[in-house]
Amino acid sequence: MSDVFLLDGEQVPFTVGQTVMAAARAAGRYIPHLCWHPEFQPHGSCRLCTVKADGHFAAACTLAARPGMTVDNRTAELDDQRRTLLQMLFVEGNHFCPSCEKSGACKLQATAYELKMMTPHFDHFFPDRAVDASHPDLLLDFNRCILCELCVRASRDADGKNVFAITGRGIKSHLIVNSPSGRLADTAMSLADRAASVCPVGVILAKGRGFVIPIGERRYDRQQIGAAEEQ
């Protein structure tokens, strides 16, 4: 028999060593997140999955579940904070949804819909970031990077290629390509790599298939992300 904790008042079973996020996911419960992915080690960086566990704030993706723990998730207070985090992500990069191939299948956008973000609120940075179209099969648009490091983890842990890394500190942190030229074409990256399809936003895009599924019929067009992930 497994132990249980309470997520927004409902019992969620877990096994010893499982995180609150993993247990919630296994039970079909949605905790908003961006940098967490079931296939990879938790990263704990986006802070979107911050919950209140027994009265203390903690990232659900790194917090080990404990028997009888009381976890608040979708409260007005936590969702307000999540919306503010999203707003900061939107103004830090250039997230221009009308021209983005990922629109409708983007987790940043879908999470912002879920949390009813009506405005980015803060002043936009409008950073100047070049795209890398050097690779024959893949396009890199750094304007949309949210520093989740899923591509870094996928390329290192699943593909064994170490194609991506984050460099710089604080507000200057940014995604780079690990090749002498800094260009994706000069790496071993291929379209079949896990890193090629793991990006939750529109940074790593397969060329030539951007609109195979039309806008309006994509995953989060059909279903809000919370409902989509609760299955």
Partner: peptide
């Protein structure tokens, strides 16, 4: 009311902002 993407976040015209 900020009516539409450009009023909300600058939209397409704001794509010149890094230049």
């Amino acid at each position: 009311v900020a009516f539409g993407a450009c009023a909300v976040n600058g939209g397409l015209p704001a794509q010149r902002n890094h230049l």
